[in-house]
């Protein structure tokens, strides 16, 4: 259940929020929606792929953090050491128009967490960082949506099948994931290529392509985790 309210320094004056990454706070996601501005940070750690919204069928872009439901392979007891996508960083906060809203039912709301307002009712540094995050995230969503629509219109999206076999004998078959169709990209007319370049999309496309190299890296991470689990069992 969610109970979302617009944030104000009156009702929510004493509210404290756990900002760190932990499974119990909802960071255990295998696929997190991301925005174009994050691509350079993401591409060095995670595959950046497209998938479809289950409710609308529309494509969106996300970072792949794991293979199984609720699996974030970059999350451990200390949190997430690698880049933490904005959609995880934002915690229980949302935007509503130009204002910040908060989900009061979020498990992150916890007296041991960080305060949102100072004694005098000013936003704390933490809340300021959240407000700054939304200044990136909000327009970023629009930019990313336009980018995805352009990819779709130019038929630059293709399905990618990821089949993996791990050393513990288990297999994973991931479907419903999509990437850049490089054949179509190579065959694009010059005018489209220039347009993609001018709009900064070409760089995003190449970052997505390069990030595919993170799939085997991620698989190795998963393999290590599985082997660790089996060796622990056999001890």
């Amino acid at each position: 259940m969610t109970k979302v309210e617009l944030l104000n320094n009156h009702t929510h004056r004493d509210l404290k929020v756990q900002a760190g990454a932990a499974a119990r706070y909802g960071d255990n996601q295998r696929f997190v929606a991301v925005i174009a501005g994050e691509f350079p940070h993401l591409a060095v750690h995670y595959p950046i792929l497209l998938t479809k919204d289950q409710d609308t069928g529309a494509f969106f872009i996300g970072a792949m953090l794991g293979f199984d439901e609720g699996e974030n392979l970059f999350l451990d007891q200390r949190g997430m050491e690698t880049y933490r996508p904005l959609n995880l960083q934002r915690g229980p906060f949302f935007t509503a128009g130009n204002e910040v809203a908060i989900d009061l039912d979020s498990p992150r709301i916890d007296d041991a967490g960080k305060p949102l307002f100072t004694e005098s009712g000013e936003p704390t540094q933490y809340l300021q960082s959240i407000m700054a995050l939304f200044r990136d995230l909000k327009p970023g969503l629009e930019v990313t949506k336009n980018f995805v629509e352009t990819l779709s219109r130019l038929k630059l999206i293709e399905a990618i099948d990821i089949d993996l076999a791990f050393d513990d004998g288990t297999k994973r078959r991931l479907d419903g994931l999509y990437t850049i169709n490089q054949d179509v990209l190579r065959g694009l007319p010059d005018a489209n290529v220039i347009d993609l370049f001018r709009r900064g999309y070409l760089q995003l496309i190449y970052l997505m392509m390069a990030s595919l190299k993170q799939v085997p890296v991620l698989a190795r991470r998963k393999n290590d985790a599985l082997l660790k689990a089996t060796s622990l069992l056999s001890v």
């Binding site: 609308t56 069928g57 038929k155």
Partner: peptide, 11 residues
């Protein structure tokens, strides 16, 4: 209804 509203993707 959903197809009317959101459309189907071509891939």
């Amino acid at each position: 209804k959903k197809i009317h509203e959101y459309g189907l993707q071509t891939i």
